[in-house]
Design a protein around this nucleic acid. Structure first.
Lengths: 371, 371
DNA sequence: GTTGTCGAGAAAAACGTTTTAGTTGCCCTG
DNA sequence: CAGGGCAACTAAAACGTTTTTCTCGACAAC
């Protein structure tokens, strides 16, 4: 990396204004740096300084616009009041919503955060924790990001591909979520359910799929292998948007010509893509196929038709993650290793009563679909 | 802020592993810290150290896993290789897309970044630049964020509510964008055009509106005041999603009962909300009303019907912003003060030929709409 | 009148680097 | 054989704080 060049000749940027240092301030006050440091840093020794002197110091600090140098301070305190957030991609709405929640908590507590989007890149994944540690982060939040070693700072993970000692995990209760989705669909009369699984490598993919099967099995329903697709493999699938992946996934499903009357998508974005694919194939949602998503992203209540979905309270989950991390950092965390978040069924317009002929007639419908 | 407590009794976190320092490394090598520093930091003086010694040093650094303390180093170099990104809200897709582009550039160059979402809060807006400066950021990117003073670091602004000396601005060519939108609509035969203006306080709102009027005027068309609404006022409008704001904006428009056959929305998210409101009012898009958005967010190509929009290359704009900032930081920026980005018309399915009766008959239609 | 204590503050070391200004030994030159 | 020049390294100051240890005077106690 090149050394800093003299700055451009833009008048006001030509030379940096000198920051007031502790020494300057002390000289100006005719006090020792020690004394000034005591009061400015809020050290317990500040008590031993006369009240009048303390006031003089604060006044002068204000006047000279003194701002302590965070880096010099770090050398002693080892504190940075910053954390890191590791995420597959800042850009997608799932991560963005979580980060929003995280930030709102951190800001309240005076913490800053670095974001690293690894986009599945193995070297970033390997090196990021260390470079972040170099920058003094006091903890990390792993969103859907793998890890398999110990780190010298507290960690909170959203999803369970993050492994290492002492991790606190926050995840949606996929069992409950699956039950909610499946029961809703069954109650509407659906029996042939197709599933768009998440991308391979995503923390929720396997668990959610397993729970979906379990919820179906409870009612004697099986999801036919031909009626399942996945959204791709990390990191390749990251090059396309979720909606795009959902679109092609639904197309694959249709190409198989095996009938289904309901579709459970891995998340709302892929559900939106899938609905588009169904429409393009001449199928109506929900008349021909019911579709249910996961997440409840902001758009979901405004699509045409409005998306039925299993809501994850992403913003609250982010806040909880940040709060938990901060408690762990201060050593006050007494909660469990796993925090399960309860999802919620939001019925809107993409699911409806199944009007399809009973199972044995479905072959005909399936053929009709192939036009 | 409380002092760091002894960490919880989680076996592996109980005591932090000691990091190798320069002194330890030097002792181990039986060399002076100076020598080791020269070669590790890539100082020009490293040349004066025997090649064999240099290799010994690197080997030992590797073996002892030496990682220079960034904070100690800062005291001399004044460099942090970090910047700040200020944004109304990390969560919305516009900002998220820009940040994605910014990050991808920064990561390539080894820079880290802090994000601050101000959500329009005046005190955050006022104090953030200083706290960020305290943390040593070498530059800042203001996305749709106001400023009105000089800062001692280079600034790149996306949108023009950011003011101060020496700022480099990146913005979409709203003139071109407006022409693209208006010409497309006029060519389809639309004459009564409604507009959902951006939120008051957004950097593009006024410019885009003015350009829209201008583009219409060129063809002798006037946008009737009754056919305009805005998306709210910062920061209040931030409490709802853009889609939601778009929904209520469109409802207001309909309530006025003044006919329009085409609607230009401030962005895609509000367009999606508006389309929902039109549907709810029994109007078909595009048969009854054509709708055109701005941005081209990922969902736009998958909505039903697919959204016609004016694309802003958000990710590239983010990359450009980061690149420009980095050049300014290194003092190599020779480009202009304003970089205008060319938008692009993406015709999809929400715009169609105007089938409405000519102007003088429109009153009837308007009445029909009011059911 | 020595000792102790207390209030108010300061000197100096420490944190982990970079940087400036040397030092040391060796060879070469005249 | 004094001196200059060079290669290879080092001592010490500096960066801007915090923290530990110390000083100094006043006053009280015995």
């Amino acid at each position: 990396m090149s050394q800093r060049q003299p700055l451009p000749i833009t008048a006001n940027l030509a030379q940096k204004p000198v920051r007031t240092t502790l020494k300057t301030l002390a000289n100006h006050l005719e006090l020792s740096p020690t004394t000034v440091s005591f009061v400015i840093s809020g050290s317990p020794f500040a008590e031993t300084i006369a009240k009048s002197t303390r006031e003089r110091i604060w006044a002068a600090a204000e006047k000279l616009n003194y701002r302590p140098n965070v880096f010099a301070r770090y050398l002693h305190t080892k504190r940075t009041y910053s954390v890191a957030v590791l995420v597959p991609d800042v850009g997608d709405e799932y991560s963005a919503a979580l980060i929003g929640g995280i930030e709102s908590c951190l800001t309240k507590k005076g913490f800053f955060y670095f974001v690293v989007s690894h986009r599945g890149a193995p070297d970033l994944l390997r090196m990021s924790p260390d470079t972040l540690l170099d920058r003094g982060v006091e903890g990390m939040i792993f969103i859907n990001t793998p890890l398999n070693r110990a780190l010298p700072v507290p960690i909170v993970a959203i999803c369970d591909i993050t492994e290492g000692p002492g991790i606190t995990r926050i995840k949606i209760d996929n069992g409950k979520a699956a039950t909610l989705a499946v029961d809703h669909l069954l109650k509407l009369g659906h029996r042939e359910i197709a599933v768009i699984k998440g991308p391979q490598g995503n923390g929720d993919t396997d668990d959610r799929w397993k729970q979906l099967c379990k919820a179906c099995a409870k009612h004697g329903i099986k999801i036919h292998p031909e009626n399942t697709v996945h959204l791709g493999i990390y990191p390749a699938c990251n090059e396309k948007t979720m909606a795009e992946n959902g679109y092609t996934a639904a197309q694959k499903l249709l190409a198989r010509k095996r009938a289904f009357t309901a579709l459970v998508a891995f998340n709302d974005a892929s559900a939106i893509g899938a609905i588009r694919a169904l429409s393009d194939a001449g199928l109506r949602v929900p008349d021909d196929v019911s579709v249910i998503g996961f997440d409840d992203i902001p758009q979901s209540s405004f699509t045409v038709p409005r998306l039925t979905t299993i809501r994850q309270p992403l913003s609250s989950m982010g806040e909880l993650a940040a709060n938990t991390l901060l408690e762990k950092i201060s050593g006050n965390y007494g909660g469990p290793k796993l925090l399960k978040i309860q999802p919620q069924l939001v019925v809107r317009e993409t699911t409806a009563v199944c009007h399809q002929p009973p199972l044995n007639l479905i072959a005909g419908k399936s053929a009709a679909r192939s036009r």
